[in-house]
């Protein structure tokens, strides 16, 4: 995009690159890319003021499809990378993206601590309840009885509950969106970015290749069924009586973000040597 274009009213296409996604036709992640671009345009941020950071997996390919600064790192470590970037460069708007395997399995510990640390980031997890890039293994959010080559009898393990975990661990904003509703999702993303602190968005993003039954999500989701609250107890009650298909903002708190000062020194580096002189 050119300088001249930024001077005009931004449009979603300003935020997309011309790199062709590797995703399967019909993949839910296209909708997330569209929703992100819409949200960025609505916020009126310049692409170079935005950074999109990801780990590994189908959805983690998203940074290169944006026109923003992007970072496509190693599996499971998108949150630390985004955290380091945001702490070092508080002037940037940092969006961390990824999938359920990347965020809840290999990166699970970072998820807990990112919620707890409450750095001003927006974390968008495209949850399709399967490892797509490695062709169909169960993830932490896969239903217990879903069978696959790797787990022919199902996992026999209870599903992970990301929104409950996020609440308990201290995320300041918790919401669920659906990729089939890019406008609604864009609204949530805008709100997440505008809310200081760590914002977590679970996005139902079907994998039509390995979980074709997820095509039905467009019929089963309930728009606006979650009611936003700043009361943690109410939010917890709501999320524990939820079947995973209710959409909207669950919790928007007012916890101050972790923002250690950077760039405001009062001492010259060389003067630090004074304490060692005899």
């Amino acid at each position: 995009m050119t300088e001249a274009a930024t001077a005009t009213i931004p449009v979603p296409s300003d935020y997309k690159s011309n790199v062709k996604p590797v995703w399967c036709p019909g993949c839910g992640d296209f909708g997330v890319l569209n929703a992100m671009a819409k949200a960025m345009a609505r916020l009126g941020l310049r692409p170079e003021e935005l950074a999109v950071v990801s780990g590994i997996g189908c959805s983690s390919r998203i940074p290169a499809y944006t026109a923003c600064y992007g970072f496509h790192g190693v599996h499971g470590r998108a949150l630390p990378t985004g955290t380091g970037l945001k702490l070092a460069r508080p002037d940037l708007t940092v969006i961390v993206t990824g999938g359920d395997g990347d965020g809840y399995s290999i990166g699970g510990n970072h998820f807990l601590h990112a919620c707890r640390r409450n750095v001003d980031l927006t974390y968008i997890v495209m949850d399709n309840r399967v490892y797509g890039m490695t062709k169909g293994q169960p993830s932490p959010t896969t239903e217990t009885h879903w069978t696959s080559k790797l787990a022919p009898l199902g996992t026999g393990i209870n599903e992970f509950h990301p929104m409950a975990i996020a609440l308990a661990a201290g995320a300041n904003f918790v919401a669920r969106g659906f990729t089939g509703d890019p406008n609604g999702l864009a609204d949530i993303i805008v709100q997440a970015i505008e809310t200081p602190g760590f914002s977590f968005i679970e996005v139902l993003s079907p994998c039509i290749t390995f979980r074709p039954e997820q095509k039905d999500w467009k019929k089963t989701v309930r728009h606006g069924n979650l009611s936003s609250t700043a009361d943690l107890a109410l939010a917890a009650r709501q999320i524990f009586s939820d079947d995973g298909m209710n959409l909207g903002v669950l919790y928007a708190g007012a916890r101050p973000p972790y923002r250690p000062p950077i760039g405001r020194g009062r001492v010259a580096a060389a003067d630090l040597a004074a304490e060692f002189r005899i």
Partner: peptide, 13 residues
């Protein structure tokens, strides 16, 4: 794992 990736993020920035 977080340490090294945080500093990667900072340096990228």
């Amino acid at each position: 794992l977080a340490s090294i990736n945080m500093i990667i993020g900072s340096s990228f920035g």
